[in-house]
């Protein structure tokens, strides 16, 4: 564990807490894409298959449980909770995310570390996470104005993988035989998808103005 990875995990945890705060405090999920939340739940479920079979550390296990639990809780909330689901923008959240799932699954069967269930699911979760934010970014562009908590949620979610890239660079130079091309390339793609959001987020922060994404 190095400082970059720890910073990445904490940033990821903050993004989840900000989203939970938004939904709990405002009893609303307006501006949040249910499809992105469903994709993230699938990412964690397919990546942490070895949750009970491969114990790394208490920290590792706890964080996996937090990510799986929170993503499922948010999906449940947005689908079932009487007040929250009323605020879900169904007609705006129209990204065909099933195509993302299919494309990532096909790619994972072709490009993986080993053609085993565990490695194919792991590669699938890596590819899917890289594109999981797309429905959310599309929804933000369609809905124009972004409330603070939603903006912060997306910002921290994007920042965490950037820390992981620093972590992979650090490990590449400090550990022998450390290569993680699949995760690294997917991580770069994932972070790049946030590039324009980061730009508009920085502008709104600099001008102390409301975050506006161009339609």
């Amino acid at each position: 564990m190095n400082i970059f990875r720890f910073a990445g995990d904490m940033t990821h945890l903050i993004s989840v807490l900000v989203l939970l705060l938004k939904i709990y405090a405002t009893k609303s999920c307006s501006g949040i894409s249910l499809k992105t939340q469903e994709l993230y739940a699938l990412v964690f479920l397919s990546r942490y298959l070895d949750l009970f079979t491969n114990y790394i550390s208490l920290y590792n296990t706890l964080m996996k449980l937090v990510f799986i639990g929170s993503s499922l809780a948010i999906v449940w909330c947005m689908r079932m909770h009487h007040a929250v689901k009323r605020s879900y923008d169904k007609e705006v959240d129209t990204f065909r995310h099933y195509y993302l799932v299919l494309a990532c699954f096909v790619l994972a069967t072709l490009v993986n570390e080993q053609f085993t269930l565990r490695e194919v699911c792991w590669a699938f979760s890596i590819y899917l996470e890289a594109v999981a934010i797309l429905p959310q970014l599309v929804l933000l562009q369609r809905s124009g104005n972004v409330d603070n908590l939603t903006g912060q949620y997306v910002f921290f979610l994007g920042a965490y993988r950037a820390f992981y890239i620093l972590n992979w660079i650090y490990r590449y130079f400090t550990e022998q035989y450390f290569t993680r091309w699949i995760a690294c390339i997917a991580g770069i793609v994932q972070t790049a998808l946030y590039a324009d959001f980061f730009y508009y987020y920085f502008i709104s922060w600099k001008n102390n103005a409301k975050l506006q994404l161009p339609a």
Partner: peptide, 10 residues
């Protein structure tokens, strides 16, 4: 690959 080492991250 060392499977354990390979999946030590989140």
């Amino acid at each position: 690959i060392d499977a354990e080492h390979h999946h030590d991250e989140l």
